[in-house]
Design a binder for these strands. Structure first.
Lengths: 210, 210
DNA sequence: GCACACACGTGTACAG
DNA sequence: CTGTACACGTGTGTGC
């Protein structure tokens, strides 16, 4: 029979079988120092309770550990061994997850920052050059030149170099704003084999000095 | 003196003090059944080693647990108690981190998806309406109308409703592409108290039916 | 004094 | 049979 102390409700053990106390029986005197026997009995009971508590702790610990496939109840030593393997596993998991989370947070942050920068750039004053592709071969190019700069640079050269890259100027219009800035709207015909993305890069690079 | 068995190298205990074996001494016969004594001695040594191993396990477990400020060595029962509190903490941490990581991953994924959708949309054919803010009060609005649609909708109404929202048409130009699409470029003067973002929303909504 | 913790020897039960 | 695990009683040390 297994002593399933772990299921007991941890009441202090009241009943003590006197037969199981060899030294108490071997002591011939009975009525003399009853207090000594009392003490011994109490000590035994206390030790019993202590063991009971420890077993209960073992039982609780067993419940926390990852379930084993074995139907047999784990022994107390192997319970500690198991906990000894399990705890570092958990700590490692925590460490790994923390690192991963950290990485994700920074990634998300710089993603957001990029987004914010892009969004902050879009609304105004950044649209020195905007390209809108209307089809695979048509692009609407919109250029804004600040008052200070548009007199310094030969704008016709830009148009010419665009033609060098396979872009033909189909239609164009321009007007001047109240503060003197110039706006051009150019409808460009591109060669079919020119990738829009690459072209946008080219345009950005070409118009960067503006 | 504390018995620091946990520091010993776990060698099986060889030397046994015979004086500490009461039952062996009380057995009068010596040369009779030496095998019984041998057995008892072995049993005792085995039990001793077992306890030693258990203590070593306790020692290792103590090292894994979060350090306590107390200088005193933890007792074995309190070691299990501590582990009993510590393991759920770790499990909870793992669970929390896993959930957080999961959330971050999905967030990052949909962020990327949004980004991809946006990038896929930008290059061509999406620019039915583009707003470029040149200053806090000036915006360059560029509208492309497909051949099929631009005859069905009263474009002047759009301009009028823009004025209702506090946008004044400063300058405008338009031209027709080779395939019959119409392009408008409008320079708008906005009231200062109109937030660009909100306005962009308005424009998007207004021009959506196109 | 008392509660607690620890180590020990011992008997018993169970699995290889 | 041997090793392992467990519970028990007991002696001892330690801190409140």
């Amino acid at each position: 029979m297994e002593p399933f102390y772990q299921f007991s409700s941890l009441q202090p053990s009241q009943q003590v079988k006197l037969e199981s106390c060899p030294t108490l029986l071997s002591a011939g005197v009975v009525g003399d120092d009853i207090t000594a026997m009392d003490k011994k009995l109490k000590h035994n009971a206390n030790e019993r309770d202590r063991r009971r508590k420890i077993n209960s702790l073992y039982y609780s610990l067993r419940c926390l550990l990852p379930p084993t496939d074995s139907m047999k109840r784990m022994s107390n030593p192997s319970t500690i061994s198991k906990a000894l393997k399990y705890i570092p596993e958990l700590q490692q998991q925590v460490e790994g997850l923390r690192r991963r989370k950290e990485g994700l947070v920074t990634k998300l942050n710089e993603e957001n920052l990029k987004q914010i920068r892009k969004n902050n750039k879009e609304p105004w004053m950044s649209s020195l050059c905007a390209v809108n592709w209307l089809s695979e071969t048509e692009a609407l190019l919109q250029i804004a030149l600040e008052e200070q700069t548009h007199t310094q640079l030969p704008f016709s050269q830009i148009l010419l170099s665009l033609e060098d890259d396979g872009l033909l100027l189909s239609t164009a219009s321009s007007f001047r704003s109240s503060n003197g800035s110039l706006f051009f709207t150019l409808l460009l015909q591109a060669k079919a084999n020119i990738l829009p993305r690459v072209l946008q890069e080219i345009l950005n690079k070409k118009l960067k000095p503006l």
